[in-house]
């Protein structure tokens, strides 16, 4: 087959593909059925009373459907450790285990041009870092009242950590931004999250139930706790990934 015929065949296949998908999706995307009201009506009437969180999205995200959120943080966990393992070592880190030399997580650094930091960048990010961190903690802790929550706060915290890492001097040992510590925080927060999720089993309120329901604690306290743990985990994990990618590891 000549190159030209091949190209036409290729384009024809793609056109067919897109047309078929369009034909299938048109009724779904363009449907003008009225949107169902049942879930909204239920939540507007009972959501605040049942969960204690006035932000209904938080109430769903960490209350009604917290199990989904657990799955989501697990996806993030696998993505981060998989990404780092793949970029830093290819398959080797997965295949060999503990034989690897430590502290190689920043391998991609070699591909960045040496001049990624300037004097100005250092000063600005160094000063901005703590502010961003505080803002992240605010977003994280007030997610049940206002927009935001553990995940969004965690992302802000991660960027704060990256700012701190960019702002610190090359040889200054910055304990918060060292990859080892970030990995420690992340794994500890993951273990805490699992403990919090299963604590309801022991206290009798069921899996992902509010463990202290018997002691008069409102569910919102449990939501805040989950927010804090998730924020910590996401912040440490994403911060670790970004620092490893920017080549600022030890």
């Amino acid at each position: 087959m000549s190159g030209r015929a091949r190209r036409i065949l290729f384009l024809a296949q793609i056109a067919l593909c897109v047309l078929l998908v369009a034909a299938v999706l048109i009724p779904v995307f363009l449907s003008s059925m009225p949107w169902p009201l049942s879930a909204r009506d239920y939540l507007q009437a009972n959501g605040l009373a049942e969960s204690g969180a006035s932000n209904l999205v938080s109430a769903i995200y960490l209350g009604y459907r917290a199990f989904d959120t657990l799955g989501e943080t697990i996806v993030l966990l696998v993505a981060i450790s998989g990404t780092i393992a793949i970029i830093a070592h290819g398959g080797a880190v997965l295949a060999q285990g503990y034989g690897l030399p430590s502290g190689t997580a920043s391998e991609p650094a070699r591909h960045l041009p040496p001049k990624t930091r300037t004097e100005l960048l250092e000063v600005v990010t160094g000063k901005l870092g703590p502010v961003v961190l505080v803002f992240g903690v605010y977003v994280m802790m007030y997610g049940h009242l206002s927009p935001g929550g553990g995940f969004q706060g965690g992302v802000v915290i991660a960027s704060g950590i990256v700012f701190l890492a960019l702002g610190s001097r090359v040889d200054a040992s910055n304990s918060l931004t060292s990859p080892e510590n970030l990995v420690r925080i992340e794994s500890a927060a993951f273990a805490l999250l699992l403990l919090a999720a299963s604590s309801g089993i022991i206290s009798g309120s069921g899996f992902f139930g509010n463990p202290l329901a018997g002691a008069g604690l409102t569910p919102v306290a449990f939501i805040i706790t989950l927010n804090a743990i998730i924020g910590l985990k996401v912040g440490a994990g994403l911060g670790f990934m970004c620092i490893a990618m920017l080549g600022r590891g030890k």
Partner: peptide, 22 residues
């Protein structure tokens, strides 16, 4: 917005929002 404070009107459906976060 699906945040219940004082007297507000009908909120939008919060379920798709929570699903889309995930």
């Amino acid at each position: 917005a699906p945040i219940i404070d004082a007297e507000i009107g009908l909120v939008v459906d919060p379920v798709p929002q929570a699903l889309m976060l995930t």
